[in-house]
Amino acid sequence: MNRAWQAQSLLLGYPDATLLNNVSLLSEVASTLDAAVGAPLHRFLQHARAAEPIRLAEDYVATFDQRKRCCLYLTYYAYGDTRKRGMALLRLKQAYAADGLLLGDEELSDHLSVVLEYAAAVPAKGRALLLEHRAGIELLRLALRDMRSPWADVLESVSATLPPLRSPAEVAKLAAQGPPEERVGTYR
């Protein structure tokens, strides 16, 4: 899964010139993967090749930066914008550092592309993190599929590297409730 997670990580990052210059290499990697994992990556890569770079970048921003349903920050699904999320981000950053991976300030530690890159470098621990956020990943996959986003194929590939959800009701509950909100100054 290392190659799959690394390729998925790159494809879920902002589609800059570096990514677009590596589409052929990523296509070669996708060809080495099982069909359930590689075929969706090929579909996305075909889209990336055909799209104008500026349009691909605009679609990325419109999809991931302007829609809460399509949030790439995994702890958002469990914690919303609460203090608990800050602690979860810190725990992730510390886990990466303990394994020798120093995270810069360009991206938060819970961004799916960062978690996938970690999984590619430290498979057992990275897989555990992906499984911990499996319901959020599935919610993101469904949101992208519903809006017919080309990135739905990348999430389809990610899901194919993980076991099916044990409780699909967990995704439905997460979707219905939405992310938690901070309740500062209120008593229960």
Results as ranks from 00 to 15, higher is better:
110 D>W: 01
174 L>Q: 07
178 G>L: 07
118 Y>F: 15
183 R>C: 06
84 K>A: 15
129 L>K: 11
66 Q>R: 14
92 L>F: 12
39 A>L: 07
158 V>D: 01
185 G>C: 13
110 D>K: 01
154 V>M: 03
38 G>W: 08
12 L>A: 11
78 A>F: 06
171 V>K: 00
160 A>H: 09
13 G>A: 06
36 A>T: 05
7 A>H: 02
12 L>V: 07
4 A>M: 10
82 T>C: 01
70 C>R: 01
13 G>I: 02
83 R>I: 10
169 A>G: 09
60 Y>T: 10
64 F>C: 11
116 L>C: 06
113 S>H: 15
131 L>S: 09
181 E>K: 10
84 K>H: 13
74 L>H: 02
149 S>L: 01
93 K>R: 11
74 L>I: 02
61 V>G: 06
139 L>M: 06
156 E>G: 10
33 L>Y: 13
101 L>Y: 03
65 D>L: 02
32 T>M: 11
22 N>G: 08
37 V>H: 05
110 D>H: 05
179 P>Q: 12
138 E>F: 00
162 L>V: 08
133 H>D: 01
85 R>A: 05
137 I>N: 04
176 A>R: 09
136 G>Y: 04
144 L>N: 05
11 L>F: 09
153 D>W: 08
162 L>Y: 08
45 L>S: 03
84 K>M: 15
186 T>G: 09
170 E>F: 01
105 D>S: 14
105 D>Y: 07
163 P>D: 14
54 I>S: 14
49 R>M: 07
66 Q>P: 03
100 G>P: 04
80 G>K: 04
156 E>M: 07
141 R>N: 14
143 A>G: 04
153 D>P: 03
179 P>M: 11
56 L>G: 01
136 G>C: 10
4 A>P: 10
25 L>S: 06
135 A>Y: 00
29 V>K: 02
93 K>E: 12
34 D>K: 12
105 D>C: 11
54 I>E: 13
77 Y>P: 00
161 T>K: 13
131 L>Y: 04
63 T>C: 15
33 L>V: 05
7 A>V: 12
144 L>G: 09
70 C>H: 09
31 S>P: 01
145 R>N: 04
99 D>S: 06
84 K>Y: 08
131 L>Q: 14
53 P>W: 14
44 F>L: 09
95 A>V: 14
118 Y>L: 02
59 D>N: 15
43 R>S: 12
119 A>E: 02
35 A>D: 14
77 Y>D: 00
22 N>M: 12
56 L>M: 12
38 G>C: 01
184 V>I: 14
88 A>I: 01
123 P>C: 00
135 A>K: 01
96 Y>K: 04
175 A>D: 10
20 L>W: 13
182 E>Y: 13
81 D>R: 06
172 A>V: 11
109 S>Y: 03
17 A>S: 12
168 P>N: 09
140 L>A: 10
126 G>S: 01
11 L>G: 05
40 P>T: 10
67 R>W: 01
1 M>Y: 09
28 E>G: 11
180 P>D: 07
53 P>K: 15
71 C>H: 04
66 Q>E: 08
169 A>D: 14
115 V>E: 06
46 Q>K: 04
162 L>D: 13
92 L>H: 08
7 A>F: 07
46 Q>S: 08
125 K>M: 08
84 K>L: 12
